[in-house]
Nucleic acid binder design. Structure first.
Length: 554
RNA sequence: GGGCCUGUGGCUUAGCCAGGACAUAGCGCCGGGCUUCUAACCCGGAUGCCGGGGGUUCGAAUCCCCCCAGGCCCGCCA
């Protein structure tokens, strides 16, 4: 409803002004929509903005009358107001299961996120990647795109060689109840300590890397075991956070199937290729001073070569390629994009998120300086269980545990996704354990309140008469949801959905406070119950698109 | 030294790409609200030279330039 109305007004504006860019915006407290186009027209037409606005408003009013949109001016501002029919239609649409879904698209999208090195558990920085990526994935599905979500498994890196070396040379027994990825971290950290003590070990690690590149079966088997072991742990962590991947793509597969050699051959033939012992690409055209190295002088490939093969494959199998990457990948991601363009391949769209650090400094798996996602989930779940036990002591323990898990995921996911990716953050336990306003649980709570009203109401006939300002404001907020989904996938900014869901919960809570539902009667009661149902459904769909369980009681 | 990102009340943050009507909200602080649909809630109050300085514009948190501060990166690592 919102999108349709927005487009109707845009079109009327274009028709009435002859301008392409019509500057239609949210009217804030003044109106439902507004435009300041009179200012820019004033210069061209050498008339006062107010005179232009007044004149335009009359013509716009005529052309939008059929759509039930009224137009008025306030000085040079032109304001648009929607009708009661808009409000009614908005509520009607929001009652439908799956509300917010956009028409199906045919453009195939591949989205890569998380892809952390399997040398230790996912920490609070990695899951920023997972949560941004997974939320975006849910938005793409909601927006009607066929989507595949991939985890790129770096199984040929130096870190894996170190872990592999560690399994042969440092105490490696898995402790009782220790998760696989935490086990790997312990071995990795211990191996690094050995390397610090005795730099000669580096040579042994180098040899492992040469063996893996050559395809030595024993080394391959060992690397694969180590990596699979770690991934088992990752899958549990991500599962606990409602993060889902469709496919795990292994880096080494591109070496084995020949894709990497093929892309290297093509690079060798590029005019920008440089053969100076190493094989590298001159990227000055894209503004990079340093060459992009593809193959070492000893003939082995670097990460970039496999990455180029991987992205060539993605580009040929999908219409849109999106990667979610940490800020440390900014440069190499640009180099990758540039090289793919030189090769005539599709370059990925890249979403960069800035780093999460600890109050005492940056995180480091190697140094064992990190807060694991598992620890975070456990702590937040404990706090949530304590809260729910205090509020709802009558519930059976199992139910309280179930609610605590859902609340914990909501708190963690929302806390991360609500911040713009380009802000670097410092992890804060106090914030992580806060379930008050501007939190995931706050939105879940609004949903639970709506569910509670509906449960107590029993059956009712739908009705659509809204006069109270809180009713109308809530309905208008409900109407925006599909437009927000559309905006998220267009701009690749999932935090917009977080902001929207919070505003929706705010509107619902105001409505809840001022507008009695169960105590009202007749048509009014029916209309309000219908609105509560629409709000409940919209809250549910918003929460689920954020990867948060829309629980009905808490 | 160079590149990218960030700087908004005591703290966290929206708005910035597509410049307009009194800069968004939360935490904390002060005060109020549970015999009334779940108080993980709601209402009121105090707190801002939107990092600093120039410029463009009728109009700048938003665009341009310079400076300062913080983060990330600049490897035949990944």
């Amino acid at each position: 409803m919102f999108l349709e109305t927005y487009r109707q007004i845009e079109e009327a504006l274009r028709a009435c002004t002859g301008e392409e860019a019509v500057e239609l915006m949210d009217g804030g407290e003044h109106a439902d929509f507004a435009t300041t186009i009179a200012f820019s027209l004033a210069k061209k037409q050498r008339k006062s903005p107010m005179a232009i606005a007044t004149d335009l408003a009359v013509r716009l009013g005529e052309s939008l009358a059929d759509a039930g949109i009224t137009v008025e001016t306030k000085g040079p501002y032109i304001n648009f107001h929607v009708s009661a029919a808009y409000v009614e239609e908005a509520v009607r649409e929001a009652l439908k299961p799956g509300y917010g879904e956009l028409p199906a698209r045919t453009e195939r999208v591949v989205l890569e996120h998380t892809s952390a090195n399997p040398n230790g558990p996912l920490h609070v920085g990695h899951i920023r990647n997972s949560i941004i990526g997974d939320t975006l994935a849910r938005c793409f599905r909601k927006a009607g795109y066929p989507l595949e979500v991939e985890y790129y498994v770096n199984d040929m890196g130096r870190q894996i060689a170190i872990v592999s070396w560690g399994f042969d040379h440092v105490p490696k027994e898995r402790l009782d109840g220790e998760k696989e990825d935490h086990h790997i971290a312990r071995v990795y950290i211990a191996a690094n300590r050995e390397i610090e003590k005795d730099p000669a070990i580096t040579g042994e690690v180098d040899r492992l890397m040469q063996l893996i590149e050559k395809g030595d079966p024993a080394t391959q088997k060992k690397f694969r075991e180590v990596v699979s072991h770690c991934l088992e742990g990752f899958k549990v962590t991500m599962g606990n956070l409602n993060v889902v991947h469709d496919r795990f793509v292994w880096e080494s597969d591109f070496v084995r199937n020949g894709d990497m050699d093929r892309v290297i051959e093509r690079i060798e033939r590029l005019p920008e290729a440089k053969h100076e012992g190493t094989l590298s690409v001159d990227l000055t055209e894209c503004g990079f001073e340093k060459d992009y190295v593809i193959r070492r002088s000893d003939g082995t490939s670097v990460y970039a070569a496999r990455d180029l093969a991987f992205h060539t494959w993605k580009g040929r199998n999908f219409d849109r390629v999106i990667d979610v990457l940490g800020a440390d990948h900014k440069l190499i991601a640009s180099q990758l994009q540039c090289t793919l363009k030189l090769l005539g391949e599709k370059a990925p769209e890249i979403i960069i998120f800035e780093f999460v650090s600890l109050p005492e400094g940056s995180m480091s798996t190697r140094a064992g300086k990190f807060i694991s996602a598992d620890e975070l989930v456990a702590e937040v779940t404990n706090k949530a269980f304590a809260e729910v036990s205090e509020r709802r002591p009558e519930l059976p323990q199992e139910k309280r545990e179930e609610i605590a898990r859902a609340v914990a995921v909501a708190a963690i996911r929302y806390d991360i996704v609500k911040i713009s990716p380009e802000k670097s953050t410092v992890f804060d336990w106090k914030e992580a354990l806060n379930f008050e306003r501007q939190s995931g649980p706050y939105i879940q709570y609004s949903h639970a309140r709506a569910c509670s009203i509906l449960e107590k109401a029993g059956a009712f006939d739908e009705a659509f008469t809204y006069t109270d300002e809180h009713e109308v404001a809530l309905a208008k907020q409900i109407a925006r949801f599909p437009a927000v989904v559309d905006q998220v996938v267009r701009e690749l900014r999932p935090h917009l959905l977080a902001t929207y869901a919070r505003d929706l919960a705010d509107q619902f809570n105001s409505f809840y406070r001022y507008v009695p539902v169960l105590k009202s009667e007749g048509e009014t009661r029916a209309s309000r119950l219908t609105l509560v149902k629409a709000a409940q459904n919209t809250l549910k769909e918003s929460l689920e698109t954020l990867g948060i369980d829309a629980i009905s009681t808490m």
